[in-house]
């Protein structure tokens, strides 16, 4: 598991580095900005469809993204924990 600690440390460093390199950047979500690129090419383009439902605010959107990540993490942790328990029991029997 030492290897995993190193990998996660590397992940944290990669995630943190931008704050030092691009100090002062706005780190905006790209949703709107990707659209800007399109409108730069085609100023008269109008999106012809809209979302059926939109989160009421940025906070609510964060809530839903956090929920998505939490569900995923819970599933992974459950299965890995289950497997660990099974392995331990098997080893005890032997």
């Amino acid at each position: 598991m030492k290897r995993n600690c190193l990998l996660i440390l590397a992940f944290i460093i990669i995630t943190a580095v931008p704050f030092f390199i691009s100090n002062g950047a706005d780190f905006e979500g790209a949703d709107g900005q990707a659209e800007d690129v399109i409108t730069a090419f085609h100023p008269d383009y109008k999106p012809w469809a809209d979302f059926i439902w939109e989160p009421a605010s940025g906070e609510i959107e964060s809530l839903l993204f956090a929920l998505q990540a939490a569900i995923g993490a819970a599933v992974i942790a459950y299965f890995v924990g289950l497997a660990r328990g099974k392995n331990l029991r098997q080893r005890e029997r032997q």
Partner: peptide
């Protein structure tokens, strides 16, 4: 995630 380009 943030990227070195100053966006996410």
């Amino acid at each position: 995630l943030p990227s070195v380009t100053g966006s996410t």
